[in-house]
Amino acid sequence: MIDALYQKDVMRLAASAKGAGKLPTPTATVTVDNPLCGDRVTFDVVMDADKRIQEVAHTVKGCVLCQASASVIGAEAKGETAESLNAVRDTLRGMLKSGATAPTDGKWAALVAFAPVSGHKSRHECVLLPFEAVIQAAKKP
């Protein structure tokens, strides 16, 4: 069970830390905290005129799951809008809550690595927190 939670894909995603760091001139920066554990995720974004993410970077003070989730966003969020990221998050939340279909769409297929987290309710927020941060950043006027 634990090996599934910390399978190689998740460890690799966390270690790759795609998008880790800060943007020199973000159009928006949002920090969100997990009040249960104190984890903190900050996302910098540069939005284009169509409200699509042009550049993205993150700073994560959190667990492996949180780091891995932020890494997927760092790799895939360019070109997304707040609404489209919201839809990805809803699919991800469904997968975590009820084991619903994983997001198998090519771009976000890496999120299937989090399917084993479904059985660990206390860890769902670890995966979802980076999405909360990037969505808030993308929405910011």
């Binding site: 069970m1 634990i2 939670l5 910390y6 554990c37 984890d39 959190g62 667990c63 492996v64 799951l65 949180c66 660990h120 860890r123 670890c126």
Partner: peptide, 12 residues
Amino acid sequence: AHPHDICQMLDS
């Protein structure tokens, strides 16, 4: 190493 990861692994 994050405390949640440590605690999760200790749970196993």
